[in-house]
Nucleic acid binder design. Structure first.
Length: 570
RNA sequence: UGGGGCGUGGUGUAAUGGUAGCACAACAGACUCUGACUCUGUUUGUUAAGGUUCGAGUCCUUACGCCCCAGCCA
């Protein structure tokens, strides 16, 4: 029945939702002959983020695991906040993540049915039209510790309620003048049960139903019934809706309709970022980032543009698991997931981000050798390419040290290092300007050490560094991204400060990199590894034909950097 | 402080009342023409105190800590 192979590496442990689902199907009469049916129900009021990815993977994953179905349903009950733009971005993101919905639906598909059910409640004497305004209603609601008081309009006759509700629907009253409420219990310790509002008046244009309605159902009145109509077996949502479950159950029971089971799991928190739609919107609107798809954003579209793959995001969701404990995931788990996937698929190239010139004094001027380079050592079918080797080259500035520590096995005065896919070279002279800045390194190469030649094998040097030809290379813009925030929990700001004060001022650094010719030919969206640097993606927005702009997705693990920063701290 | 949840190594997540496991991270070593990858190994844990039991992460009691709820948002 279940497919454990979809649970990533290692032993697959069932999460609590899977365990409950299996119990339900084994024991519940109403589920006999049925299959798992879930839904992903976003409100189209913003872009999806990595937290939604968890819910998407869970809902669609459950359907897949158990051979069932999952709908994409837009919870579009509040027209003032929703738009087509968001609907489209959400559809794109779900598909991009690799999931296909069974049906594409909207809560607004059910407005008529929801309205009829409201009339049914009125006729049965358990819903009433209330004239209290927002302030008065709050005042009648009581507090966490004090019970509420009944609305003075609670005992209107059924006829009057029917008439008033009909006139609400017809548009006879202004926004906020009246609401339709359920009669439950104003003294309930669960605030959601203190005569909840079912309908409010909003003379607003809806992105799908236009101006057909001026009353709109509340979330609680729409959600469970929508699930019921669709035959959802398990309605999975986040923990903050736990207190709404009694209402969900009350509506299904009171209306005597098919009753799905709501289950809640903990939403994800990620270190060094914010996740609430309000804060993400603020970052966009106040131009702290370039948009919802800024490569530093935790949105699906931002991660996609940064260069994250659907596989890596799914792997991430698999690794973090599902439970009822409000956890905070270390962002390195996300970074590790994309490294693991890209390691298997990304072609390797050489790129020098911070160049320093090397002149091989014993190499013929004007000569170009084409060196054979493996495209991806993890992928035998990846083949190889030729890269030009010349007298003048660039290497990474940090790959040379004049007075290096003992464990430094890159280039140093009088020291030897191998140029990847090239020769072993030795540094003979450091040329500096008047201020002592290094201008170039004058080195000699050993012709017997050419990569791939039999004589090269006998020669062992500790270090291998990357390089590009000075004359036969291209130059591209590279955006080196870092975390958007400086603190693990950006919301945790001192008094008088906000999460915005925790923004990392150096979250993007732009450099001109020297790259081997192939790098300049990559198409937008291409994901590559710059050897010894990291994984990079040709930006889909700012790259132009023949002129790619690269985003750093994530750096490679760097044992040397770790070693040196640790020593500095000690 | 009313109600509802939740506490397992650094971070997550498992364990019909029966050897506390797995992943990620970290560390050490091997390998390496990427200080990557891979491989091998190691360290670190049941919030606390009582109780039931031959035996408790699991059951009971009490404490402590954290999260959610007072929208005509979802």
């Amino acid at each position: 029945m279940n497919d454990a192979s979809d649970h990533g590496s290692g032993n697959a442990h069932k999460n609590f939702i899977e365990i409950e689902i299996e119990k339900d199907f084994a024991s519940k009469q109403e589920l006999v002959g049925r299959t798992v049916y879930t839904r992903f129900p976003p409100e189209p009021n913003g872009y999806l983020h990595i937290g939604h990815a968890k819910s998407i993977c869970l809902n669609f994953g459950l359907a897949k695991t158990y051979g069932g179905h999952c709908n994409l349903r837009f919870d579009d009950t509040n027209p003032t906040k929703e738009s087509e733009e968001y609907v489209n971005s959400i559809k794109t993101d779900v598909n991009w993540l690799g999931f296909q919905w069974d049906k594409l639906l909207y809560a607004s598909d059910y407005f008529e049915q929801l309205h009829d059910w409201a009339c049914q409640l009125i006729r049965e004497g358990i819903a009433f039209v209330c004239d209290l305004n927002a302030d008065e209603m709050r005042e009648h609601r009581g507090t966490l510790t004090q019970p509420g008081r009944n609305s003075p309009y609670r005992d209107r006759s059924i006829e009057e309620n029917l008439d008033l509700f009909a006139r609400m629907k017809k548009g006879e009253f202004p926004d906020g003048a009246k609401t339709l409420r359920a009669k439950i219990d104003m003294a309930s310790p669960n605030l959601n049960l203190r005569d909840p509002v079912l309908y409010r008046i909003m003379h607003a244009h809806h992105h799908r139903t236009g101006d057909a309605w001026c009353i709109y159902p509340m979330y609680d009145w729409a959600h469970g019934q929508s699930d019921s109509i669709e035959g959802i077996t398990h309605s999975i949502c986040t923990l903050e809706f736990e207190d709404h479950r009694p209402l969900y159950d009350w509506f299904c029971k009171t209306l005597r309709i098919y009753h799905p089971r709501q289950m809640e799991f903990a939403r994800m928190n990620l270190t060094y970022t914010v996740m609430s739609k309000r804060k993400l919107l603020q970052l966009v609107q106040e131009n702290h980032v370039s948009g919802w798809d800024d490569p530093r954003m935790p949105t699906i579209s931002g991660l996609r543009r940064r260069g994250y793959t659907p596989e890596s995001l799914r792997m991430f969701c698999e690794r973090i698991g599902v439970a009822r404990f409000s956890s905070t995931i270390d962002v390195v788990v996300l970074e590790g997931s994309v490294r693991d996937h890209l390691n298997t698929i990304a072609p390797r190239f050489m790129a020098v981000l911070d160049p320093i010139k090397v002149v091989l004094t014993n190499y013929p001027e004007g000569q170009t050798e084409w060196m054979d380079a493996v495209n991806n050592p993890e992928d035998p079918s990846g083949g190889s390419r030729q890269i030009p080797f010349t007298r003048e080259l660039y290497i990474e500035r940090e790959d040379f040290m004049e007075t290096p520590p003992s464990k430094f096995f890159r280039l140093k005065p009088a020291g030897e290092v191998r140029l990847r896919y090239g020769y072993v070279i030795q540094c003979n002279e450091v040329v500096k300007d008047a201020e002592g800045n290094i201008l170039e390194l004058r080195c000699t190469f050993d012709p017997t050490t050419k990569s791939g030649s039999p004589t090269a094998i006998e020669r062992k040097v500790k270090g291998t560094i990357h390089w590009v030809s000075a004359s036969e290379s291209a130059e591209v813009e590279v955006r080196l991204y870092d975390r958007l925030f400086l603190s693990e929990n950006p919301e945790d700001a001192p008094a008088g400060k906000t999460f915005l004060d925790n923004i990392n001022p150096n979250s993007i650094r732009v450099v001109r990199a020297k790259v081997e010719p192939e790098v300049a030919k990559q198409l937008p969206g291409a994901k590559v590894q710059f050897e010894r640097n990291g994984y990079f993606c040709a930006d889909v927005v700012d790259s132009k034909p023949g002129v790619p702009v690269y985003n750093r997705i994530v750096s490679l693990k760097d044992a040397w950097a770790r070693m040196t920063t640790r020593d500095n701290k000690a």
